[in-house]
Structure formats: C-alpha cells, structure tokens
Write a protein that binds this DNA or RNA. Structure first.
Length: 268
DNA sequence: GTCCAGGTTTTTA
DNA sequence: TAAAAACATGGA
C-alpha cells in the first residue's frame, strides 16, 4: 500500500477525540477508520500526517474530509483576539480540524448521541455499520445509507441497542430516502434553511440539527450548544453569544467544548 | 439501587 | 406556554 505524507497542523488525536466523530480508533499508534465508503489508515508525524491511500482517494476524498486547505492558524489568531479564554482554548488543542463527514452519517450519529455518552455512541454506530453497512475491508464496514435504514423496523435495529432512538433513526432515514429532506439543497443553502429543514425530522431538535450542519455540511458558523457548551459559555465566556464568533463560530465551539471536557473540575 | 450521558418528545399543571 | 417526566441502555 502506497502512502502520502502531508505537511499540516492537523493533529489526529485532538481531532478524533474531541467529540465530533465516532468512527476513528487508535490501534498500535495508527488510526483506523472509514468515510465515504472507504477505509483509511493514518499515522501522525511530527509536522504532518501520513495517509495510507492512493493519490486519487486523497484528492477526491481525504483532502477535503480533513479540511487540509483551510488556514486554521489564521482562524485561531482571529478567535484569540476575541477573548483571552478563547485564545487559551484554541491553544490547548491547536491541531483540531472540523471534519467534513457525510451528511447522513452526521445526522444519524448525532441522533444517536442524544442523552447518551460517547463510548456508548461509538458502540451503537459500530454495530449499525457492521450489521447494515457494506464490507469495505477486513472487519471494516461503510456507514449504511439512508435507503437501507429506512426499510428497517425498530425490531431490526434492536441488536444495535440504540434504545428509544431507534424510531428516530428510522424516521430520519425515511424522510431523507423519500426526498422530503433534500441533503444537497441543505448543503447548497444558507445555514438557516438547514436548521429549519432538519428540525422537521422527528427526533431532531436544535442541537442535533446544529451538529449535523457543522460536522456533516461543513457550515462552520454552526454552534451546537449541549450541556457542556451551556456551562462553558456561562463560566468561561460570560457575556458572549455565538454570533460574536462570526463565520468560524463552529471552530470556536470545538475548541471550547474540548477544553471544557478536559477540565470538568471547572464546572463543579 | 441511584445517577448520568454532545436531547427531544410527550405529558402535566 | 412553560416546566417536568419519560425515553433505553450501560457504566460509574
């Protein structure tokens, strides 16, 4: 397998473990995962990353998936001017990139995330892929598309143990498979359209919609507010609102979310 | 046994 | 209309 070395500030550990994605795992120093129907193995280098894939796959999929062309350094500098706390949060994990996940995967994953914890979310998604995705490698499966999921019953989903969220997953898949919710149109439209459209889906409220838009549609002005971000804004950024962070609010959100989750003692 | 987890829906007052 | 309870599951 040939590999490609890229010079970048992207840090795999920070990016994969900051709560935006659920399908990447570290084994013996390498990261393994899948997206867009392709598996990938990665290695962190001192001044970049090494991807074990073809040049073609890099250019068609991974370059944009990992947001390698965006200047995070200048975004961090701009955000740092807003407040010292935000400057500290962005310096805490400066290698975080906002991934461009597949829209349906992001929608489905964050439906599963509601009132749930990250290890269990990962387990549910892993079982969902293994049972209903296509095999694309040695014990690696694609994320099952909405058409496949829409034809299932809650009983079919019982083995993934998603609990009360099963009916939401099936309902969302149906809305998308039937074309009632147009993912392409959301991608091409301003974020307000996506917020309204996604919240028409049974089981999607403001927070899951916002996560889907930021992580699945790369709407970087998106600013998901969960229990952590609510506390983080109250304690770390009093007087500020998401609009103060501008077009890179989503990046600010990710820095603050990760910074807060790594310091739970601040919110006791 | 109780509490909590990157919320949302349903029920209740 | 707004606040509280219910929703499945599993680890602490």
């Amino acid at each position: 397998m040939n590999s490609i070395k890229i010079k970048t500030d992207l840090n795999l550990k920070e990016t994969f473990e900051c709560g935006q994605c659920f399908r990447w795992n570290n084994t013996d120093g390498y990261y393994y995962g899948a997206a867009y129907g392709k598996e990938l193995k990665l290695l962190q280098l001192k001044d970049g990353i090494e991807l074990f894939c073809s040049q073609e796959d890099f250019e068609s999929t991974w370059q944009s998936y990992f947001d390698l062309e965006f200047n995070y350094d200048s975004a961090r500098k701009e955000l740092g001017l807003i407040s010292p706390v935000l400057e500290a949060a962005s310096a805490y994990a400066p290698g975080i990139h906002i991934l461009s996940q597949e829209p349906w995967e992001a929608i489905c994953s964050f439906i599963i995330s509601q009132n749930n914890n990250i290890p269990r979310i990962k387990g549910i998604i892993e079982r969902l892929c293994a049972l209903f995705g296509e095999q694309i490698g040695d014990d690696v499966y694609s994320f099952p598309n909405a058409d496949v999921i829409s034809s299932l019953s809650p009983e079919d989903l019982a083995p993934i143990r998603s609990g009360f969220r099963a009916k939401y997953i099936i309902s969302a898949a149906g809305s998308i498979a039937r074309g009632e919710i147009d993912l392409e149109e959301i991608k091409a439209s301003p974020i307000e359209f996506g917020r309204a459209e996604l919240q028409k889906i049974h089981g999607i409220g403001p927070k899951v919609a916002e996560c889907s838009l930021l992580y699945g549609f790369h709407k970087t002005e998106g600013f998901p507010i969960d229990v952590w971000m609510k506390r983080a804004m109250e304690v770390l950024m009093p007087g500020f609102s998401p609009e103060d962070f501008g077009k890179n609010a989503g990046i600010a959100q990710q820095y603050l979310f990760h910074y807060s989750r790594m310091h739970p003692e601040w919110f006791k």
